[in-house]
Design a protein around this nucleic acid. Structure first.
Length: 694
RNA sequence: GGGCGGUUAGCUCAGUUGGUAGAGCGCCUCAUUUACACUGAGGAUGCCAGGGGUUCGAGUCCUCUACCGCCCACCA
């Protein structure tokens, strides 16, 4: 027996050595697996953002996927787990802008597009190396030879190709719509990138003018400079008589023409039952305006300032203009009521900027248009069907309801962004002509669209762009559709839904069969781990203290799919102790000569456990599995069977049998220590590709 | 406003198809150098949030209520 077994298990000394052993074997790459590994099994790693380092949530994701992959590999599958990183356009752009501002006091326009993008690329390159190191330390058996990046050459070709195909099918269009403008980030964002914040606000009720008999309510009087109508419910007896009339009024210095229209979208019960219609600055108003052929007047610009030439208001910030208009209303005795209310205000997820709805010329994905080549189903329907038909199974199941709910309320997806870091939109303009293609058009005078694409456009392609699409590669044929997509429930809309959209349309197949959603990892107090709180624990510091295997167990045990978990020193300590227990069991068994006949009863008992565990693994119940093996190894094997063996002779053969097979069952969960012990038992082969017992 | 979860031992949470309540940590008693003190043996602790229902039988199924949490949302 190796003398290292005489001292407690030392993860620090073991882990790097074992990882190198695995890497040297080449078995992370499915091409190198023994020939009996025939049936492919694929997971693509959700590419972590190149903005930062791996957080505990990222560690959880890595561990769950590694467990699945190691299990499937031992079961004889040709397993591919494909790594990569995400360029995370807006997030990265914003982060580097912040650094630029802090270090040089400049903004991106000061240094120009080319220099800025170079700076971002430099930043990203540094982070990618650190990420790879952290992920490896988790024990991840990823095929690094296939590593991809959402913004590399191949993925750029995939993006251009996808864009062109969708444009040709009429699924991508350019048009003026009311979009979510982030004045702080100076870009549009999609509906999903909005977070609502509760704020105290005031609801003002007033008349535009003494001559206009109908009063309206609003929290944003400054937008009323752009009103072109008042909408009332067609059945509202108070206002029916006014429908169809037009009033010319002077409102705070702006000449308005207000038409009274009847529209069923108006809630008679709210406020005065009359709605001032601002077609340029409200989605719902724009819809009303479209129904009644009303014109739109833009009053607010990209800097959230009044752009309408009204003396005293032009150039003012919206908040200042609001005060001035309220003062004017008061002075003219038009203000009827002022109420304190709490309002949910839309802010940009990345910058915190308050969203300003503005009409802008942007690129969109049409989610409702029937697609001829897909049985006249729309993207929305394709996304819905993929899950409703059972072709994609979401775990935990109740998230399927959330998914359907989201699809049912889905609007067209705004995909163009006014930032510099990202995939440039493959559209070129010359005079009035638009050219969309994968390459720049021939001839002089074409100018490419300056905008970039929403980062989720390229991540939506991930399951197949990472396998080489649009080229018809062998990998694509072998490994797509992928088997499991494992990710956090917080990005089910951002990412999971978009991947289904892209794969269903571009490939005509689902991107994966099972979606396993994990929850948030919280600290021991149950608080969200966040960088701003300073407790965003680096998984490597945990690994140093407790060992990777202990961290893996602590992250997994008792944590079902979709539920949030808590990670604290108690749990880590418990599994660190377990690693050492296993170590000592190995020491005890190894100190004996293998001998005696197998105890049938004990072997049967173990095989029953193995069957049970296998069933759990097949059903993604890792949180139960890990605990079952733990409990068996410690409290049955060590406390009872080994104790019994001390009093009886000729049991060592049975002990070896149980130890070896326990190591196999435990390997997906605790790969390092099990491999280390295995190397002492069987000096030729790696536990990592040993066949699963059962 | 719409939707989805949760409520089980002091704490953190399991409990797959309904069959006399489980684990880890903590607590109490004992063992004292044992493969392992990063240990072992034993022990205490629960009206499974509350009401109603289905059933021979409910933590588990149905229904209502309360509280907590999360997601979505263009009541101006």
């Amino acid at each position: 027996m190796n003398s290292k077994f005489l001292t407690p298990y030392n993860p620090g000394e073991t882990e790097d050595r074992i990882y190198k052993l695995w890497e040297k074997s080449g078995f992370f790459n499915p091409d190198n697996l023994p020939g009996n590994h025939k049936k492919p099994f694929t997971i693509v790693l959700p590419p972590p953002n190149a903005t930062g380092t791996l957080h505990v949530g990222g560690a959880l994701m890595t561990v769950i996927e590694d467990i699945i992959i190691r299990y499937k590999r031992m079961r004889g599958f040709k397993t591919l787990w494909l790594p990569g990183t995400d360029h995370a356009a807006i997030a990265t752009n914003a982060k580097v802008e912040k650094i630029l501002h802090k270090e040089e006091g400049k903004n991106r326009h000061d240094i120009g597009r080319e220099a800025f993008v170079a700076k971002v690329e430099n930043f990203v390159e540094k982070n990618r190396g650190a990420l790879k190191h952290q992920i490896s330390k988790m024990g991840a058996s990823l095929d690094w030879s296939r590593e991809a990046f959402t913004l590399d050459e191949k993925r750029n070709l995939a993006v251009r190709t996808a864009f062109k195909k969708m444009y040709d099918a009429g699924l991508i269009y350019r048009g003026i719509r009311i979009i979510n403008w982030d004045p702080k980030g100076q870009t549009t964002i999609s509906d999903d990138e909005i977070v609502h914040e509760e704020r105290a606000s005031k609801l003002y009720t007033f008349k535009y003018s003494a001559d206009l008999p109908i009063a309206i309510s609003t929290t944003r009087p400054e937008t009323k400079l752009g009103d072109t109508a008042i909408a009332v419910h067609p059945d509202d007896e108070r206002y029916q008589k006014y429908i169809g009339q037009t009033y010319k009024v002077n409102f705070a210095g702006a000449a308005l023409e207000i038409k009274i229209v009847g529209d069923a979208a108006v809630d008679m019960e709210f406020g005065t039952g009359a709605l001032g219609v601002t077609p340029a600055h409200s989605q719902i108003d724009a819809e009303i305006a479209a129904r009644h052929n009303l014109s739109a007047v833009q009053v607010i610009n990209e800097h959230a300032k009044i752009s309408l030439p009204v003396p005293g208001l032009e150039g003012e910030k919206t908040t200042v203009a609001r005060e001035k208009i309220v003062a004017w209303l008061r002075e003219k005795h038009l203000l009827i009521k002022e109420e304190e209310i709490t309002q949910n205000i839309a802010t940009a997820e990345r910058t915190g900027g308050i969203i300003e709805p503005l009409p802008k010329l942007q690129w969109f994905v049409n989610v409702s248009k029937p697609i001829e080549s897909r049985g006249n189903k729309s993207l929305k329907e394709l996304m819905y069907d993929a899950v409703a038909s059972g072709r994609i199974k979401i775990l935990p199941e109740h998230f399927e309801k959330t998914y359907f709910h989201w699809i049912n309320n889905l609007h067209d997806w705004n995909i163009s962004r006014q930032i510099w870091y990202g995939h440039r939109i493959p559209a070129w303009y010359k005079d009035e002509t638009i050219y969309v293609g994968t390459e720049e058009p021939k001839g002089a005078g074409w100018a490419q669209d300056p905008d970039t694409l929403d980062t989720w456009f390229s991540s939506g392609l991930w399951t197949f762009s990472s396998l080489g699409w649009p080229e018809k590669t062998k990998d694509l044929k072998t490994y797509h559709p992928t088997d499991v997509l494992e990710t956090g429930y917080d990005i089910i809309f951002f990412w999971v839904a978009r991947m289904i959209l892209m794969s269903e349309f571009l490939l005509g197949e689902s991107p994966f069969k099972t979606v396993y959603l994990h929850g948030l990892v919280r600290n021991q107090k149950g608080e969200k781990l966040s960088k701003s709180l300073g407790d965003n624990i680096d998984p490597l510091s945990i690994t140093d203290q407790y060992g990777t295997d202990a961290l893996r167990m602590a992250l997994i045990v008792g944590v079902g799919p979709g539920s949030d978990s808590k990670l604290g020193p108690d749990k880590l300590k418990a599994y660190k102790n377990f690693a050492n227990k296993l170590w000592n069991i190995a020491r005890f068994v190894l100190s004996q000569e293998r001998g005696g006949e197998l105890d049938k009863e004990l072997v049967n008992e173990f095989d029953g456990l193995a069957k049970n565990v296998t069933l759990d693994m097949e059903n993604y119940r890792f949180y139960i599995t890990a605990e079952k093996i733990y409990s068996y190894v410690w409290h049955r094997f060590a406390d009872e069977i080994i104790e019994k063996s001390k009093k009886e002779t000729r049991m060592s053969g049975t002990l070896y049998y149980i130890l070896e097979n326990s190591l196999k069952l435990l390997h997906p969960f605790m790969p390092f220590i099990t491999e280390e012990i295995w190397q002492e038992l069987d000096k030729k082969n790696l536990l990592m590709i040993e066949p699963w017992p059962v």
